[in-house]
Amino acid sequence: MQGETLRYRALRRAIVRISERVFSKTLNAPEIDVLVHREVVEVMPPHVEYCLTDLGVEAAERRRSLADWIEDSLPRVGGEWALRGVIGPDGSVRLPELTESLGLPGRVGRRSV
Rank of each mutant, 00 (worst) to 15 (best):
V86F: 08
E80F: 11
E97I: 00
I87H: 13
R17H: 13
R84D: 12
R64W: 08
E20G: 05
H37W: 07
V40Q: 10
R17W: 10
E20M: 10
E49Y: 03
N28L: 01
V34A: 05
A10E: 15
D33R: 14
E58W: 04
P45G: 01
G91F: 04
V77H: 13
Y8Q: 03
P89W: 12
I32A: 02
P45M: 01
V113H: 07
R12N: 01
D33L: 08
R94C: 04
L6G: 05
S73W: 04
P105I: 02
R111M: 00
R21Q: 09
V40H: 14
S24V: 05
V48S: 05
V77G: 10
H47V: 07
P46C: 02
S19A: 08
G56S: 12
I87W: 15
C51M: 06
Q2M: 11
E80Y: 12
E42Q: 14
Y50L: 05
F23P: 01
Y8W: 09
G106P: 04
R94G: 02
V43C: 03
L74K: 13
A59L: 15
E80P: 04
C51D: 03
P75Q: 11
A10T: 10
V77K: 12
V34C: 05
D54I: 05
S19W: 04
T53G: 07
T26W: 03
L52R: 09
G106C: 00
Y50V: 04
S112Q: 03
E49C: 07
N28Q: 05
V36Q: 02
P30T: 04
K25N: 06
S65Y: 13
A82P: 03
R94P: 03
R12P: 01
R64E: 12
R7L: 05
R17S: 13
L95A: 14
R7S: 06
H37K: 11
V48I: 15
D54E: 15
R84M: 12
E58T: 11
E39Y: 10
A67V: 07
R84K: 15
G109Y: 03
R107H: 04
W81T: 08
A29N: 09
S24H: 07
R21T: 07
R76N: 08
R84G: 02
W81K: 08
E42K: 15
P30L: 10
A29P: 00
R9W: 07
R12M: 01
L74D: 02
V16W: 04
S92A: 13
E4D: 11
P75R: 12
S24L: 07
G103N: 10
G79I: 12
S92H: 12
W81C: 13
L6V: 02
R17P: 00
E31D: 08
R63P: 00
V108M: 03
S19K: 13
S112P: 00
C51S: 15
Y50A: 06
W81S: 03
D68F: 13
V93L: 13
E100N: 09
K25F: 00
G88E: 14
D72R: 15
G109Q: 00
D72F: 10
P75C: 12
R111Q: 01
S112Y: 02
C51V: 06
G79A: 14
G91A: 02
